[in-house]
């Protein structure tokens, strides 16, 4: 009886010691993880700040204006084109479209009619992965062309 008790005691002692070590290591591991996470949060935050600053820098009005003037044929809207929603004319029920004749404009509140899929379904899919290096080669080709 006493022998069994002792054995149980020794076993319990071992188990508790093992458990304690496990726990201690687990806590240490979690702490490391926490530090790593906090560090990466700080890094991400900083990256976000940098990107915000960069975005602001890239979208500053004078730069946008220069790009728009060079690449787009946009002009400021004249005042008569700015209307309140209530200022819009009522929606017509029919319209004459060149080449199409008179078409009826569907009621916007009606349930949507079944529509064709925007892409054909029977487009052949690639049968195998592209060979290794093909994508890089493609990039290179684009870069070459761009030059």
């Amino acid at each position: 009886m006493k022998r069994a008790l002792t054995a149980a005691g020794v076993f319990a002692l071992g188990a508790v010691a093992y458990g304690m070590y496990q726990l201690a290591y687990e806590v240490k591991r979690l702490e490391d993880e926490l530090i790593a996470l906090n560090r990466s949060i700080a890094q991400e935050r900083e990256a976000v700040e940098v990107m915000k600053a960069e975005w602001t820098y890239l979208t500053r009005p004078d730069r946008l204006q220069a790009r728009v003037n060079r690449h787009l044929s946009l002009a400021p809207p004249p005042p008569h084109r700015i209307l309140a929603l209530s200022g819009l004319p009522p929606r017509p029920e029919e319209a004459v479209v060149e080449g199409w004749g008179v078409i009826s404009i569907p009621d916007p509140n009606a349930p949507p009619a079944p529509q064709a899929k925007p892409f054909p379904e029977n487009l052949p899919l690639p049968v195998a992965d592209p060979p290794v290096g093909a994508l890089a080669a493609m990039d290179l080709a684009t870069a070459e062309r761009g030059r």
Partner: peptide, 21 residues
């Protein structure tokens, strides 16, 4: 109760990975 980032900020700062603005 998890340690909040501010509580660990000192720890992180000590590791030199990020300093507060």
């Amino acid at each position: 109760i998890e340690p909040t980032p501010t509580r660990t900020a000192g720890l992180v700062a000590a590791t030199g990975s990020a300093s507060p603005v």
